[in-house]
Design a protein around this nucleic acid. Structure first.
Lengths: 77, 77
DNA sequence: TCGAAAAGTGAATTATTTTGCTCTTTTTGT
DNA sequence: ACAAAAAGAGCAAAATAATTCACTTTTCGA
């Protein structure tokens, strides 16, 4: 249950990255060059096979004009 | 500029974890036991010396009743 | 349909996180 | 003030992320 919940979250993040990059019309190579994160690492993340460190994630999100937010869970928003 | 911005974000996250745990009145050891993340790792994170992977962060946040959100940056909310 | 660009995969290496052990320092309650 | 509990740190081993290089597959426009 825990594992699954974590995985879901992680894949959600990965999907958002992939979608956002597509929307911006840049390639994985572009994202790699600009963010300084290795191309292979970006590929891993976008195919849901990665477990990046926060710093790696932040570098990528920054280029995509996105940010990370930590908040208290609410059952009903 | 990039480094600093990233660091700020990371320390923000670390601080929120530390504060939230205190609020809940549990020890680092408790958090370690419940989340399954090593005590040393939790200490590292709370003292701002860590760069946890997403999975590690999610395990901790889950116990603390918190969640991660990825969103588009807005200059003015 | 073709060919080029982009995306995905395997293997090997390097870098970093995660971890436990031990010890010191700080905090907390009585 | 004292003792116990909790938090912070150094060290080294194990696990895993990050990176490079080479190759295959898929996507996409002319």
């Amino acid at each position: 249950m825990h594992e699954k919940s974590d995985k879901m979250h992680l894949t959600d993040i990965c999907n958002k990255i992939k979608e956002r990059r597509s929307l911006l019309g840049i390639t994985q190579q572009d994202l790699s060059d600009i963010s300084g994160v290795g191309l292979r690492t970006i590929k891993e993340i976008e195919t849901g096979k990665g477990n990046p460190s926060i710093n790696t994630l932040l570098k990528i999100l920054d280029v995509l004009g996105m940010e990370l937010d930590v908040k208290i869970k609410r059952t009903i928003e």
